[in-house]
Write a protein that binds this DNA or RNA. Sequence first.
DNA 1: TATTGTTATACTCTATAACTATA
DNA 2: TATAGTTATAGAGTATAACAATA
Lengths: 189, 189
Amino acid sequence: MSHDAATTPNAPGSPDRGEQVAADLLKDDFGWALGVILRRYSKAVEELLDDVPGGARGYQVVASASQNLAMNQGALGAQLGIDRTVLTYLIDDLEAAGLVSRQPDPSDRRSRRVVATEAGQTLWQDRRNALTTAETEILSVLGNEQPAFKELLQRVATHADRLDPLHNACQVVEELTEPRGGRRRRRTA
Amino acid sequence: MSHDAATTPNAPGSPDRGEQVAADLLKDDFGWALGVILRRYSKAVEELLDDVPGGARGYQVVASASQNLAMNQGALGAQLGIDRTVLTYLIDDLEAAGLVSRQPDPSDRRSRRVVATEAGQTLWQDRRNALTTAETEILSVLGNEQPAFKELLQRVATHADRLDPLHNACQVVEELTEPRGGRRRRRTA
DNA sequence: TATTGTTATACTCTATAACTATA
DNA sequence: TATAGTTATAGAGTATAACAATA
């Protein structure tokens, strides 16, 4: 997905150095700000989670498996917004790394419950603190306004999530675009 | 339809408590909040900009071309974080749509300056308001705290951008991630 | 030799569908 | 027939390299 900075009120008065002007204008943009922050955070996260198979997404699976009692793959995918076909490979890798394991569901032999191994739970607990630290570093500029910002952010996110519940970021949106129109991205074939 | 939202419970009659617990935990997450907001905003933007070639990114090019005087493609790509090889195709489409045009640089015949046509400038001005409206809708929950939030957001973003200036979001793995596979090779010719 | 822009190719994701084994 | 999970294939998007025209 492409992020969308771009729009900004412009003062077309003195066009000095176009590059600098545009750069400043971009920084007033809402989408630009969101994108920068998310990218910065994502980068820190990916670095912290580089060694876990599947990166941040793999960690999410381990985290969910650590917190909950044996969700099956369907429930896991629904919660994390991961397609089941992708989840298969992801769990394959996590299982090979010894972080989770698939266990048969006695009540439904089609289903497989994903549980975290001890190594998985250890990893989850270890990385949680590191992730919180990364978050704090990004927000450090805010000083004592940090809690206020986080509160506002959560408020906006919860609101936005109610309007459009989908739990994976940075993924193309075409899902809920209403099956009526069939607006597909057209590419000059 | 690839994946469903997490709000869909399991089968009626079997209330899976773990799912709900994990969902609540996720909502305390910083990255989750950022992702939700950005995705929601991106979706609105993509819908508003669906008819412009290249979507939001194409619009960014038109917007830059409208605001500045004739940047060449290299400068454009650097500013927007678009690779020059991608930018070529993008401008091709925008030019075919009559929104921008490539003009020769008299001082350097290798370079081409990208300028917005009248149609491009009109499009830029028309969509700006719509985008602002979309932003306002997302932030509407905040009421009169909206300006405060935006101020904090800009502060964090500017700080993050200083640490890591790269102007495209949702594009994981840039250069510093890791020498996985092939790293940039030194020129030897 | 370096740089601007173009083109061609390979690789990474993701989506779509088909398949199995259960229910 | 429907569902949980798996596997295979195709597509979009991007990166990488090579190229031509200039500097």
